[in-house]
Amino acid sequence: MKKAGIIFLILLMTASLYLWFDHHRRPAEEWQEKSAEERRVEVSAGSSLEEIADKLFDEGVIRSRHLFKIYARLHEMDRNMQAGLYKFSRNQKVDEIVEKIGQGRVYTERLAVPEGSTVEEIASRAASNLKLTEDEFLQEARRSADGRNYLPDSDSLQYRIEGFLYPTTYLVPYDIDPGDLIDTMLDRFEEKWLDEIESFIYERDDFKESWMDFQENWTIREVVVLASLIEKEAVLPEEKPVIAGVILNRLKDNMRLQIDATVQYALTERKERLLYSDLEVDSPYNTYLYPGLPPGPIASPGDEAIKAAIEPDKNDYLFFFARGDGSHEFTKSYQEHLQRQRKLLD
């Protein structure tokens, strides 16, 4: 009987310990009673295990500080808690919470950067999706060029990085530093295109032949400027090399490019439709007033636009206009250009 009593007591203690453990490894009751499905908690750099446990408890993410610390120490994560912003769901248990912080699985968000985006448009998207503000992003954009010698450097540029923030979808920490975000985008451009553009400029004879009539030595900046013009002018992928050829032809003949997108970039506010007075805005980006390429890119070009810039179509076209369905009409003379426009309006 005595032995049976001891066994019963052990079983009772084991069951009690299990129930205590199971109860305290669940989210706090206060959270369960509220409607929020998730909570965000920021773990500051240098925080101790005790400080992290206190913060999670105060936020209602865990029921027991002690169990959190015990689990972290048992799994040797007590000295490996990583700083960052974390998102916890209502049904996460203490072991999952410890592992998330110990492995640094911070709260991430997707940031989609469409082709043809400007720095200011990217700043707006980043502020909508991430913790940073537009002003923080733009302040960093004005000074984020250290160590990247291929970026243009001119007093007429508002942002040296304009055109070089690679357009794609990024998965980044929600609280990412604006400088780190910009570096990520510039790194992606370098990984994707920098070496290839340099090889086209310095090594490929067919590339040089396409461009040499305009000037002898081209730079990475000028290639990206051209690609940005193509990106903003062309809708159909198959027309991008053709438009690249038209731009090069006009440069060769010392004709002003007269590209509306450059005027839009020069204006303080974008317009659905440009007025004749807008074409007189005094800006080096205004290709109605100033010859040659703009001093810098006007947007971030996508892959097809960059490829069109380094592999332009060899044609005799000097003019083009939009049909209204996304396609363009290309002509070799101004007289033909006007005739086609009138015919389209009839």
Rank of each mutant, 00 (worst) to 15 (best):
G302F: 05
W20P: 03
E238H: 12
E196T: 11
R63M: 06
L257H: 05
A53E: 08
P295T: 03
K100P: 12
S128A: 15
F21W: 10
F319T: 06
L171D: 12
R65V: 05
L345S: 07
E231P: 00
G296L: 00
E33H: 06
E33P: 04
I52C: 03
K55I: 08
L17N: 02
E336M: 14
S47W: 10
K131H: 10
N249E: 14
V235I: 11
I122N: 05
M77D: 14
P173H: 08
L236W: 11
A145V: 06
F214R: 01
D206N: 13
E269A: 06
S144G: 03
E29G: 11
F164E: 02
E42H: 07
D95N: 13
R204C: 02
Q32R: 13
Y317Q: 06
E329W: 01
D303T: 14
Y18I: 12
Y170E: 03
L138S: 10
G163H: 01
Y159L: 00
P301Y: 00
A141C: 12
K55A: 10
S128R: 12
R270Q: 12
I306V: 14
L67C: 05
E38A: 13
L11C: 15
G60P: 11
T331S: 15
V172W: 02
L344C: 03
W20D: 06
K343D: 13
Y202F: 10
L151I: 05
D78S: 12
Y159R: 00
V43G: 09
A112C: 03
E59W: 04
E38T: 12
G302W: 03
E136S: 14
K131I: 02
A145L: 04
E198Y: 09
G292H: 06
M255S: 05
Q264P: 01
G296M: 00
L85K: 07
D177H: 11
V41G: 08
T168Q: 13
D195W: 03
H66A: 13
T331G: 06
K271F: 06
D135F: 03
E120K: 13
V113N: 07
T168D: 14
R105K: 15
P27R: 06
R63P: 04
S35M: 11
I70S: 03
V246T: 11
D22W: 11
H75I: 10
I247W: 02
R39P: 06
P27K: 07
F68K: 08
G245A: 11
W211R: 08
R323M: 09
F321K: 10
P167G: 15
E134S: 10
A28F: 08
K314N: 15
